[in-house]
């Protein structure tokens, strides 16, 4: 197992390299580059390509540019923002805690609502409670976050005037205002996660509850609580861990929308803004930083599989 962890960590290096190639290729050279080859399509117009080359002064061979860029990135030099002339690393490090704060609040909302709801629902499939919870979850999944955000702003800021429509205040500066400003983004960010966790968690639990060994456990007269806690929950952990792992990427994407709608100066907002200002160094830095976060979450997910289910061998 220790060997597996080590190998898995080492295996993140090629992943990071692929990530770096994709982000480098996507934004610096358009047609006929490795990223497009990965996409399997030959798209993009020669005019924009030439314009971009001109704009960025790309005359070195590609691999030299990539090597130079990667060398700087590894040393923590993400270049300088085209828009503000600040070092990209400075910009991002200033914004990262804000995104973490909002993202953690969102995940907390998601897990605290999602997991208990899944369990309640799966234990009484077909009951009125299950039906209501499932309906709410279906609604939560279908609800587009930007629409939910607009509805919230309309209801709580425009109509009721309870909460500020947007903005961000550090929690230490003004805890109460900060909390009020965090409320809508956190709930909007957590709603989709809660719904997905509930729905897939329920379906994972039901899948497990339909297995032979559950029937056996019941047949041999075990109390229902024991069947659920020892036999069902343990076996449902793998899919539930997968679901949680997949939520991280979704939360980061959701953060981009939520940060944009609510004017929160986080990393996601920086990436979205950078696209419009063609501030490629900032976009690349933001993408790489967010990507590293998701990679670490993936690693933890994979390690958890083996811990939870000994049937999975890492050989």
């Amino acid at each position: 197992m220790r060997e597996y962890i080590l190998r898995r960590v080492v295996s993140m290096v090629p992943v990071l390299l692929i990530v770096s190639v994709i982000s480098f290729g996507l934004l610096y050279v358009l047609p006929g580059d490795p990223a497009i080859a990965i996409l399997g399509e030959e798209l993009g117009t020669p005019e924009t390509y030439q314009a971009l080359r001109e704009e960025l002064g790309l005359n070195d061979p590609l691999w030299v540019q990539y090597g130079n860029w990667l060398g700087r990135v590894v040393r923590g030099d993400f270049g300088t923002s085209i828009r503000t002339q600040e070092p990209v690393a400075t910009v991002l490090l200033r914004r990262a805690p804000i995104s973490l704060y909002v993202g953690a609040a969102g995940l907390l909302v998601g897990v605290l609502i999602g997991l208990p709801a899944a369990l309640i629902s799966a234990l009484r499939p077909g009951s009125r409670l299950d039906v209501s919870v499932s309906m709410l979850a279906l609604g939560g999944i279908a609800l587009p976050s930007f629409w939910q955000a607009l509805l919230f702003v309309y209801l709580f800021a425009v109509l009721l005037r309870w909460l500020p429509p947007s903005g961000y205040t550090p929690p230490l500066t003004d805890p109460w205002l900060s909390f009020k400003m965090l409320l809508m983004p956190a709930v909007v960010l957590g709603t989709h996660s809660a719904a997905v966790i509930m729905r897939q968690g329920r379906s994972a639990l039901l899948e497990v509850l339909g297995q032979d060994y559950i029937a056996t456990a019941r047949a041999k007269g075990l109390a229902e609580r024991r069947v659920v806690a020892l036999h069902a929950l343990k076996n449902a952990l793998i899919p539930i861990i997968t679901i949680l792992g997949l939520q991280i990427g979704g939360l980061v994407s959701g953060a981009a929308i939520v940060e944009t709608v609510f004017a929160i100066p986080g990393v996601g907002r920086a990436a979205v803004d950078a696209i419009f200002f063609r501030d490629y160094p900032v976009l690349q830095g933001a993408v790489l930083m967010l990507t590293l976060a998701v990679l670490i979450a993936n690693l933890l997910t994979d390690l958890a599989y083996g811990y939870v289910d000994p049937r999975i061998r890492y050989g």
């Binding site: 990530v19 979704g250 980061v252 994407s253 959701g254 993408v287």
Partner: peptide, 29 residues
């Protein structure tokens, strides 16, 4: 899986944004 990890490691919407921005905004892209 390394390839999948790499693609998935990108926050989905951000990667979709970047790809669409790079290929040019259109329905097909």
């Amino acid at each position: 899986m390394r390839f999948v990890d790499a693609v998935q490691a990108f926050p989905g919407l951000i990667l979709a944004l970047a790809i669409t921005a790079a290929l040019g905004p259109s329905i097909g892209n």
